[in-house]
Amino acid sequence: MAASASFAERFKSRAVATLWRILSGWQPASLWRLARLVGPLIQHVSQRERRVTRINLGQAYPELDESARRQRSRDSLVHSSATMLELGFAWLGDARRVSDSIQEVHGRELLDDARDRGQGVIVLAPHFGNWEVLNFWLSSHFPFTAMYEPPKLAALDPIIRRGRERQGARLVPTNPRGVAALLKALKRTEAVGILPDQEPGWGSGVFAPFFGRQAYTATLLPKLVARTEARVVTGVARRLPGRGFAIHFLAADERVYDSNEATSAAGVNASVEAAIALDPAQYQWEYKRYRKTPEEAEQRPDWKRFRLYR
């Protein structure tokens, strides 16, 4: 059985890597056309993604009627398909072509001004648009450090790592050693990236509202801010269907600077909401953002640690 599983993993890794290499030569316009073909298929056959997307959209936009919610769900799965198809382009495509695909950059002054004042910059990079293109741009223009967790298919790790590091980004592990590296980078007035919308393990977060519902949210940010006085911005690469991408940097909600972890987490989630408002269909709604619940936390012996922000 183990040998069969190992063979299956090798086969899947090889197939994925081959697909990335093939698609790395495609232009964003062609990848978008392919996504428009693939997205409806995912909508049809992937019940889990369709169900979670609709539930999350219903939570975030209760004012939408059923028809509008279904349309946004379809649009969202097309954009998610595009993101997956664009990975080879972002990691393996000709660097000049990737750079040329970035048509617009908004809010760069937020990063430049902070660094001119001797402050590091923490970039909150939610799962919106194509975050790998955002990594490409950031590491092309600033000393940039980000946390990295190897993929489940270990054979893909060298490809992903080289792709993310090829413009100079430094990847650090998701452990205390990685946190120490982020702190050092910020003290050198560099930029670091963290994922604000990935659910942390128990003990590494607090509950804070996200689109009106309590979501378990990481508390790494206030620790970094308290020790470095860094500025915080939200960064996304918004897809311009058929043309390329627009980079957006938005000033974070002021609550992110609060020393109270729950208050800061509420500011993080509000910052993510503001980025999503640029184009709600480009957010990865199929991610189960509300898996951990306050009710589940209360069943744990140390539940008081998992406090709420109201």
Rank of each mutant, 00 (worst) to 15 (best):
M1Y: 07
A3M: 12
S4D: 05
F7S: 07
F11W: 05
R14A: 15
L19W: 07
R21S: 11
L23K: 01
G25S: 05
S30V: 03
L34Y: 08
L37W: 14
G39Y: 12
G39V: 13
P40W: 14
V45K: 01
Q47K: 15
E49T: 05
R51D: 15
T53M: 03
L57V: 07
A60M: 11
A60T: 09
P62S: 08
P62T: 09
E63S: 07
S73W: 11
S73L: 10
L77Y: 08
V78C: 09
E86N: 01
G88E: 10
F89L: 12
A90F: 08
L92H: 03
R97N: 03
R97I: 06
S99G: 00
D100H: 00
S101D: 01
E104S: 09
G107K: 08
D113C: 04
D113T: 13
D113M: 00
A114I: 13
G118R: 04
G120N: 03
L124C: 10
A125T: 07
A125C: 07
P126S: 02
H127G: 03
F128A: 03
E132D: 03
F136R: 01
S139G: 02
S140K: 01
F142P: 07
T145G: 02
A146E: 11
A146T: 12
Y148E: 00
Y148L: 06
K152Y: 12
L153N: 00
L156Y: 00
P158H: 01
I159M: 07
I160K: 01
R161G: 05
G163E: 04
R164G: 06
E165Q: 13
A169N: 01
R170D: 07
N175L: 08
P176G: 04
R177N: 06
G178S: 08
A181G: 01
L182V: 05
K184Y: 08
K184W: 04
A185P: 00
K187S: 06
R188P: 01
E190M: 04
A191L: 08
V192I: 15
G193L: 01
G193N: 02
G193I: 02
I194L: 11
L195P: 00
P196A: 10
D197P: 11
E199P: 04
G201D: 15
G201Y: 06
V206N: 06
V206Y: 05
P209R: 07
F210D: 09
F210P: 05
T219S: 11
L220S: 02
P222H: 04
K223L: 15
A226Q: 14
R227S: 12
T228A: 02
R231Q: 15
V233H: 10
V233I: 14
V236T: 15
V236R: 13
L240D: 13
L240K: 03
G242V: 14
A246V: 10
H248W: 14
E254N: 10
R255G: 08
R255F: 09
D258H: 13
S259K: 13
T263N: 10
S264A: 13
V268P: 06
V272M: 06
E273V: 04
A274E: 13
A274P: 02
A275V: 12
A275L: 10
L278V: 15
E286N: 13
K288D: 15
K288W: 06
Y290R: 13
Y290D: 13
K292M: 03
T293E: 10
P294S: 05
E298V: 14
Q299R: 11
Q299C: 02
R300Q: 09
R305E: 15
Y309Q: 14
R310A: 12
